[in-house]
Design a protein around this nucleic acid. Structure first.
Length: 291
DNA sequence: CTATGGCCCTGGTTGC
DNA sequence: TGCAACCAGGGCCATA
C-alpha cells in the first residue's frame, strides 16, 4: 500500500496513537528493516524519546522525536511494497510478536497507559529507521504534488527540460514525489497522455491537464483513504481504502474504457505493468529510424 | 543525463 | 493435485 494517498492515510491513522507518547522499548526481528543500524544502536536512539509529531513527506512517514522539549531526530518509515504500520490501542499486547513484524516500539502516554507501534512487512523491502536530521535524509526528493511548488508552470517547465519517457519520469521521486504505478496510470489516463510520450514534447495544454489530473486523482484517493485491493495488504486499523473501485485503467485490462468503451490494454513501460486506453491516450509518433 | 537490468524478499495466482 | 514460472502498489545500485 505504498503511494502518497496510502502513506497519508497511514500517517493519519497512527498519529493519534503516537503524538505525545514516550518510547519505552524497541525491538527488531529483521535488522535490515532498520536501514543499516544495529538493533542496540537503534534502540538507544529512540528509547526515552517523546513523539512530538507525525507527518508525511513523499512516501515516507516521519515520526518526529524530542527529548526535554528539544528535537531529537526522527523515525523514517517507508512501506515500499508490503509495509504496514499498526498501532495497538489495547495494552498488554506489547510482548507478542505479530506475523511479519519486523520492528516494534513500546509506548506509554502521560497517564501511564501502554501501547505498541508495529512495522509489519511481508517482503522486507520497507524501512523503519532512525535519522538525526530528516530533512537532510530526504533532501533528494522532488516537490510534493499537493504542495505549493507544484504549479502548472513548474510542470510545463520541468517536462520541457527532461528528455525522458513520461511515465518513468513521473515515477522518479527526485522529479516529483508521491506517484507510484497505480496513480501514474490513472493520472495519465485522465490527462489523455500516452505513458511513452517524450516528456519534453508534451504540449503546454496537455501539461496543464496532467497537473490537474495528478492533483484530482491524489485528492480523490486520499478522500477514500487510498486503495486496497488485496486483503493481504490492508491496514487492519480502521477501514481499508476504497479508491480501487474508482480505478479507470489500473488493473482493468480487457474491461471497457469508462469514456469510450474500448478495452483497456496492458503494456510494459520501463519494466512496469502499464494500463491505457489506446483511443483516449494516443501513441506518440515514432521517431523515424535511420536505415 | 538517460536507460537498462539485477537485486532485495515473500506469497498468491496461473498454467501445464 | 502438484509444482514451476510468473507476477506484485518501490527504489537502490552498477553498468552502458
Amino acid at each position: 500500500m505504498p503511494e502518497l494517498p496510502e502513506v497519508e492515510t497511514t500517517a493519519a491513522l497512527i498519529r493519534p496513537h503516537l503524538e505525545g507518547r514516550r518510547i519505552t522499548s524497541a525491538r527488531a526481528s529483521w535488522v535490515r528493516s532498520l536501514g543499516g543500524a544495529e538493533v542496540a544502536e537503534f534502540s538507544a536512539s529512540v528509547k526515552g524519546a517523546r513523539v512530538s509529531e507525525v507527518t508525511r513527506r513523499a512516501k515516507w512517514v516521519v515520526i518526529h522525536l524530542e527529548r526535554r522539549g528539544r528535537p531529537a531526530g526522527s523515525l523514517l518509515c517507508h512501506l515500499r511494497m508490503t509495509g504496514r504500520l499498526v498501532a495497538d490501542t489495547e495494552s498488554g499486547h506489547g510482548a507478542r510478536e505479530e506475523p511479519y513484524e519486523r520492528v516494534a516500539l513500546g509506548l506509554v502516554d502521560e497517564a501511564g497507559k501502554t501501547s505498541t507501534l508495529r512495522f509489519l512487512d511481508v517482503r522486507k523491502f520497507g524501512r523503519f529507521k532512525f535519522v538525526e536530521d530528516h530533512e537532510e535524509a530526504l533532501a533528494d526528493l522532488g516537490p510534493e504534488p499537493l504542495g505549493p511548488e507544484f504549479t502548472e508552470e513548474w510542470l510545463i517547465r520541468s517536462l520541457k527540460a527532461r528528455r525522458r519517457v513520461l511515465k518513468p519520469l513521473l515515477l522518479d521521486q527526485t522529479f516529483l514525489v508521491g506517484l507510484g504505478n497505480i496513480y501514474v496510470d490513472e493520472s495519465l489516463f485522465l490527462a489523455g497522455l500516452h505513458p511513452e510520450r517524450s516528456a519534453h514534447l508534451v504540449p503546454k495544454a496537455r501539461a496543464r491537464a496532467l497537473h490537474g489530473a495528478i492533483q484530482s486523482t491524489l485528492r480523490a484517493a486520499i478522500e477514500r483513504e487510498g486503495s486496497s485491493f488485496d486483503a493481504f495488504y490492508r491496514t487492519p486499523e480502521g477501514q481499508p481504502g476504497s479508491y480501487q473501485h474508482l480505478f479507470r485503467v489500473y488493473g482493468r485490462e480487457g474491461k471497457p474504457c469508462t469514456v469510450c468503451e474500448r478495452p483497456i490494454k496492458r503494456l510494459v513501460v520501463a519494466q512496469r505493468g502499464t494500463h491505457i486506453c489506446t483511443r483516449c491516450q494516443p501513441a506518440p509518433r515514432r521517431p523515424k529510424l535511420p536505415r
